[in-house]
Design a protein around this nucleic acid. Structure first.
Lengths: 189, 189
DNA sequence: GGTAAAGTAGACCATTCAGTCTAATTTCAG
DNA sequence: CTGAAATTAGACTGAATGGTCTACTTTACC
């Protein structure tokens, strides 16, 4: 056994739900991807919904932490740290193709299921808070509200990743966010 | 007969697919919403997919035209015309709750279906071109590429409308895009 | 008024859906 | 080695899925 069954399931479900959506992913697809029988799946998770909620907490949440990995450096202005994180996104082909996994699940499930809305919001707030903390430490133009600016940054990156056609290129993403970067630089003090 | 059956179907399918997604909408839900028998539905459309592609062309495309209704005025700077259109979005409760219908369908269907990707891209390009034409007529700072700026504007608005929690408020939307507005104003010449 | 086309009506179909159930097997503690 | 718990195995279920088919009714034109 190379990987515990439960972990194997979470990996497969993440990949499927991320690329095909919750309603676009069936149990049989998951079973085939995992190469396990149905009994194993329902031993570890009580339902499809419970499974995807686990994916949210155990796969998507850590990914969000990892991607906006904002190691503050004493040398750089915090704004530059954030810009570097945004630019780094361009190197992830999956992100360019499918967008932010949290945003995808949010758009599909939050309007129709309170449990999803709740769990997604927790992850979103954590993501936002990380940005807020960084911005609060930085020297910015006056009248800049860190919370509002954080939401603006996340919104723009999410939007840039979801532009049609879905399979957006690295160059296109970078061009789109070049305006965001230019704006952020004007906020430095 | 108050409304032709075909139009009634398109309206119902738009509302359902917009709020619940393509895979979250079943034929039986559509039938119940329309209060028509199955025979009528399949008389007008050969399949679920054909139906939603028709919704794209006959409902979503016109909406996009309508919402970014950018009547240029000789008095206002084109940037202000665009800002007004962006602010107007805040008055649409559906948009605040479910986001841009084109963006929703794009995220769900474009990665898994070429026909959807193609049709969505046509509508997206039309939307973008409208902005590009307006920007090209306007006096902007040098080095501003109208096409890139248009994509940035659309991305930001789409992103602001898809922030978690999904049911975002008018105030929250306006706060988020206040940064976009501030940036756009700096581009005026 | 007759007739052909357009549209309505809903029973019916194979397939797939998420989920259940019982049994076999493996794991591990004592 | 033994027995209990954890896990694997997959046949099975009822409901829902998208779609077909034939029959009936309305509409519109000659």
């Amino acid at each position: 056994m190379t990987q515990p069954t439960r972990e194997k399931i979470l990996d497969a479900v993440f990949a499927l739900v991320y690329t095909k959506g919750y309603n676009g992913t069936s149990m049989s697809m998951i079973l085939e991807a995992c190469q396990i029988p149905k009994g194993s799946l329902y031993h570890h998770f009580s339902s499809k919904k419970a499974m995807v909620l686990a994916v949210l907490k155990e796969r998507i949440a850590p990914r969000m932490d990892q991607f906006y990995d904002l190691r503050a450096s004493a040398e750089n202005h915090e704004i530059d740290t954030i810009i570097a994180a945004i630019v780094k996104v361009a190197d992830n082909r999956e992100l360019l193709c499918y967008g932010c996994p949290l945003n995808r699940l949010n758009q599909e499930m939050a309007p129709v299921d309170n449990d999803f809305e709740y769990e997604i919001n927790i992850i979103y707030e954590a993501l936002k808070d990380k940005l807020v903390q960084l911005l609060k430490r930085s020297r910015l133009q006056e009248n800049v509200n860190s919370e509002m600016l954080s939401e603006f940054i996340i919104a723009t990156v999410w939007g840039a990743l979801s532009l049609s056609p879905n399979h957006s290129s690295k160059a296109r993403y970078l061009q789109t966010i070049s305006h965001l970067i230019a704006y952020l630089k004007t906020l430095k003090r």
